[in-house]
Every structure is written in structure tokens, then in C-alpha cells.
Amino acid sequence: MTVWLKFSGWFQCRLATAPDPTDEPRGVSGYAHALPNEPDFDRIIRLQPDFAIQRSYCQPIGVKVTNIWINGIQVNDHPLLGGLVDFLDNPKFEGRNDILTDEGEEAIVPINIQIKKDCCLIQRKFDDNMNNPPSDEDDFKKFNQLKASGIHIHPGTIGETTGIFDLGLVWQDRISKLQADLQTTTNEIEEATLKARIKFLSEKATSGLASRFVARMLYSVSLTGNIAFHDPVGYLPGKPAFNLDKNKPEEWSLEFWCGGWDADALSGFIEGYLRIPLDTDSNKNLVNQDINEMIKEPSKRRL
């Protein structure tokens, strides 16, 4: 038996861009800057709003399960629909100014996906032993599996998925709202922040930066690492299947794309699929200490 979960939504990643050094805290030479009222950049890819720095009039951060298929049949009223999807362990785009990958091929490291709804929690790592940054041949082999396949220009797909076919129009609307806020603010830092965003949006609306919105980076990864699976009320019709010959869980596949990059919001869109082979007869216990912590505190998402 196989379950396919489809997920989508806006993520945030606050990072400096080339030619700044990757760990530049506020952004100087690239297009991305931490604004006066914002903390330093941390490069973390956030799929949920906790610790995201939401700028006004930008798309709300949050990635959820949108579709579910069990053995190829879509289940429209499945209880896991709307479940929160997260990448754990502070994942980052790893390219380091072309030292590790070329631009557009940045790997996401680490990969540890979690899906959570009510008391149901599903989680799996890409690998349990990979070092980051990679230090030996085995690490580099694994790292290469996490790389994107390059930049793909897909305006139709992105337009249909995000509902935004022309980012320039969205930015024009945003400029109007920010200008209105500027008329009423009396706070010096807020004023500086609004002015910086209006200037950025006005200058970049017609530049190549807005056109990055239609670019996608594609990822396809086999997950073989540690599993955490807790489904006390049976949202799924089984437990993760095991490969009996090797006495270890079968691989899960994770494919997704990141695109729709909004350089003002420092956010982009992610859409993907997680395939989980299930075994209806399994009695293996996949609850670990982390999961017990999660059950005690249902609002906690990051381990």
C-alpha cells in the first residue's frame, strides 16, 4: 500500500545574495537586505510562520498538505489534509558562492521532513550519517543527491500554482499600500524601512529580479534516514513498510520544487509530493523520544 501526500505553500529564507559572502549578516552588495527593524539574516528555510519575519503585504508563510492519494485513489476528505508540513533541523540552501554548487543548483541541507496534524506525526530524515558541510567522498555523494537540477523557467506552472501571473502588478499594489503607510507613520525606523522597501520595489519591478519569480529549482530525494511515526487514531491505513530482507524501512521518495521567489518578501513557493510505502500488518513501534516530546506539547514543531 502506498500513500502520496501533496503539499504546497509559501516558505521564507532570509539570506544574503551574491556577491555578498553567504554568511553576510545584513546583506550589502547583493539585492537582499535585512531592513532596519529586522534581525540579522540566518539563512534558515522556514515552511511555517514561527520565527519567520513577515513583511507587510506579503504572502503568508505556511506549507500544508493539499491532496492525498491512497493506492492511487484521491481521498478528498482525508483527516491529514491541512496538516502542517515542515523541514526540521534548520535547513539551508548550500552553495556558498559556487564553492559547493553552481548558482541555481544549491542543495537543501539537511532534509528532515515532518507532517503533523492533531496527534498524528510523520517524520523522516534523508540520512542519519551525512556530515554538513560534506567532508569525505560518502558525504559528497549524499550531498549531490540533495542538489537542485538547475534553474527552470516555468511561468505557467508558477502562475497557476501561486495565482500570481505577474509579480510586477503585485509589487505595484504593494508599493501603493506601503506609500499609504508612509504617510501615517511617525516612527523613524518604520519610516526608514518603508522607504527602503518602496525604493527597492520601484527600482526592481522592471529589473531581472522580478523575473526570477518564474524560475523553479527542482529537487528529488530518496529518504532513507530515521523515521518517527505516531498515528494513534489511524489517520493512515498502516505503518511505514519495512524491507524484510534488510530489516530496515523502505525508502520514501520526496520530490518538490522551490520557485516563485519574491525578493521583497524574501519568500518563495514550494510544492511537492511525499510517497510513503505502508504496511497494514506492521506492528513495529516507530515512536521515539522526540515524538513523546511532541505529543506532550502539540504546538511544538521544531525538534
Binding site: 550589502v28 537586505h33 532596519p36 525606523i189 526608514a192 527602503a196
Partner: peptide, 12 residues
């Protein structure tokens, strides 16, 4: 100030 921070970033 916030305004000066933005200006300095541009100069840098």
C-alpha cells in the same frame, strides 16, 4: 538611525 543605516548600506 534607521535612515542612516540604509544610507550607509548603500554607500558600502
Amino acid at each position: 538611525t534607521g535612515g542612516q543605516q540604509e544610507l550607509i548600506r548603500k554607500w558600502e
